[in-house]
Design a binder for these strands. Structure first.
Length: 545
RNA sequence: GCGCCUGUAGCUCAAUUGGAUAGAGCAACGGACUUCUAAUCCGUAGGUUGUAGGUUCGAGUCCUACCAGGCGCGCCA
């Protein structure tokens, strides 16, 4: 609806001025300011060197000439144009929601291929809550971009090469030896400490017995790959149970196996941005906006993580993606500029968009729980999901902007009351479903759309709710532009609140049958929007609670 | 020391991306179920938006400096 009004204003401007400025149409804060308001006149005022109110009056005349959407148009305050829509515009809008199943979709990213790379946790242990936040952000963002016409590809990058993997193998091996009482020394502090390492060792013992006690060159690589596969399977299961799926799991190791790392270094060298110093190989990233140059190959001959990451991102570019979205923990933010530098050098400037995730603090009994993967005292994603449920976990992860820290209150997430936003929203959906059941009981069913008398929906609350419904498509558009899915949860809380209020003041099913039908139709459009939005969030829309 | 993020009601957070009188929930108190689900709703209170300047018709939002907190600054990942 906002977009529609924006076009109307734009037409009016076109007719009188040679220039179309960047202006806003927004929902009015108060009833006396109408339904929507635009700042177009104020923005134009500067360029035209005229008073905003003069310009506003010109625009109003233009709008009135060509459109009959409006009941009243006024100039107010410093030069806002307040637009009062005719009630029937809103009333008719309900039919659009009902008929056009794609009413909340847009084509902003149409024709664009977008990769969203997220989670990408090292296969050295189970996912913790921080990964869960990234998983939901990536998953929902992907849904929204797809709703805006993009062809979205979800990928998980597996860091299955390098020292961490060796350490993982060694950790399991040490536990294995312990099971045979062969290792009297204390368990190395560098090793992964978690309980799951012992379980993996036990698994190997159960399956292969003592066959690894003898010295064997391939022994360690077996432990590494066994642990990696087991852990990765666990991660995939956790993600699956959390409603998060991927199109592809991309292996870092495969980059080495296919020689991609060497290739990309060669490419950078040909461009002349590689040099040797102190026995190491450096990339001149400072020439592309980074603070300083970075090492790609250490003096001991090992490639750095940065080197493989360049190779990986080059691979993404080659796969023809228009936009590359990476979701990282905020502790990696120092890494953004060097990767951007690399992509600039490779001719993919501006394609990368990194979203940084701040920490999740788990709160229980009013106190924070601390966590650290290495120390083995973390709360896993699975534990949280088992405790509060998938719906609550997903929803709460999206109640904050990604770059602000999130306090996740486990007690609150389980509470079945109005302070729990998940239930509040789901309850609205369930209540409408319940109204439907009551209607069915009384043999009231909805006729063809055109046989519904929407003019009966004339209460202020009804119009206000329809107005809120009408900006839902605009919300989807703006969320996909800004890449801020958390706005959806706020929108739904607001819409749910409006519905609950309405429910308490008006009866839907009653003696007046035409009115009952109109209102039944009305609340079901609320339900449609709630269900659509919950669907994008991957949260269920229950019919009863 | 340098860089990034954050700072809004007692608490947790919003604020349509520069718009009109900065809004919700929690916590406190009072009220509403013989009714389509009370997991709901209604009413009462709370503010120098960390501080000081600046930009303009207009600043919580943009710029500068400072204060406080978090994170990062390796030939680690």
């Amino acid at each position: 609806m906002k977009e529609k009004i924006k076009k109307v204003v734009e037409e009016a401007i076109k007719n009188h001025f040679s220039f179309i400025p960047d202006f806003n149409v927004e929902i009015a804060k108060e009833a006396k300011f109408g339904d929507f308001a635009t700042n177009a006149a104020m923005v134009l005022a500067k360029r035209e060197k005229k008073a905003p109110k003069t310009i506003a009056n010109v625009l109003i005349e233009e709008i009135k000439k060509r459109d009959d959407l409006f009941e009243k148009i006024e100039v107010a305050g410093p030069g806002f144009i307040n637009l009062f829509l005719k009630k029937e515009v809103f009333q008719e809008y309900l039919k659009e929601i009902e008929i056009n199943k794609n009413f909340a979709r847009n084509d902003y990213y149409s024709g664009k291929k977008i990769m969203v790379e997220f989670v990408s946790a090292n296969p050295t242990g189970p996912l913790h809550v921080g990964h869960g936040r990234g998983a939901v952000l990536g998953d929902v963002l992907s849904n929204i971009l797809a709703a805006s016409g993009a062809k979205v590809y979800r990928e998980y990058y597996i860091n299955d090469a390098g020292t961490q993997m060796t350490l993982l193998g060694e950790s399991v091996f040490a536990r294995y030896m312990e099971l045979f009482k062969k290792n009297t020394a204390e368990f190395d502090k560098r090793y992964y400490q978690g309980e799951y390492i012992i379980e993996l060792a036990q698994k190997i013992k159960d399956k292969y017995g003592s066959s690894f006690l003898e010295e064997d060159k391939k022994r360690l690589s077996f432990f590494t790959s066994f642990a990696k596969k087991e852990i990765m399977d666990g991660i995939k299961k956790d993600l699956n149970d959390f409603g998060v799926s991927f199109d592809n799991f991309f292996s870092e190791k495969s980059l080495y196996d296919k020689g991609k790392v060497q290739q990309v270094l060669l490419k950078l060298k040909e461009k002349g941005f590689i040099y040797e110093k102190d026995g190491a190989i450096w990339f001149a990233s400072s020439q592309f906006g980074d603070d300083k140059d970075r090492v790609l190959k250490r003096s001991d001959g090992e490639y750095t993580y940065f080197a493989t990451d360049i190779a990986y991102h080059e691979d993404k570019v080659k796969r023809d993606f228009d936009i590359l979205i990476d979701i990282w923990g905020a502790d990696h933010h120092g890494y953004v500029s060097r990767l951007e530098a690399a992509l600039n050098c490779l001719g993919a400037k501006g394609k990368l968009k990194v979203l940084l995730l701040q920490l999740v603090n788990l709160i229980k009994g009013g106190k924070p729980l601390s966590m650290s993967t290495r120390a083995g005292q973390f709360t896993t994603l699975r534990e949280v999901v088992d405790e509060v449920g998938k719906d609550a976990a997903r929803f709460i992860f999206l109640t904050r902007r990604h770059d602000s820290p999130l306090d996740f209150d486990l007690d609150l997430a389980k509470k079945k009351s109005m302070d729990n936003p998940v239930y509040y929203v789901q309850y609205a959906h369930a209540r409408i479903s319940s109204i439907n059941r009551e209607a069915e009981k009384r043999k009231i069913s909805l006729p063809e759309v055109n046989d519904i008398d929407v003019k009966l929906l004339k209460e202020d609350e009804e119009i206000k709710i329809i107005r809120q419904l009408s900006i839902y498509p605009d919300l989807i558009l703006s969320v996909s532009k800004m890449m801020e899915p958390h706005r959806l949860t706020f929108y739904m809380q607001e819409l749910s609140s409006m519905f609950h209020k309405y429910y308490n003041s008006y009866r839907v099913i009653q003696d007046d049958k035409p009115l009952s039908i109109a209102r039944l139709f009305f609340v079901n459009q609320i339900r449609h929007v709630l269900a659509d939005c919950l669907g994008l969030l991957g949260v269920s829309a229950p019919k009863e609670m």
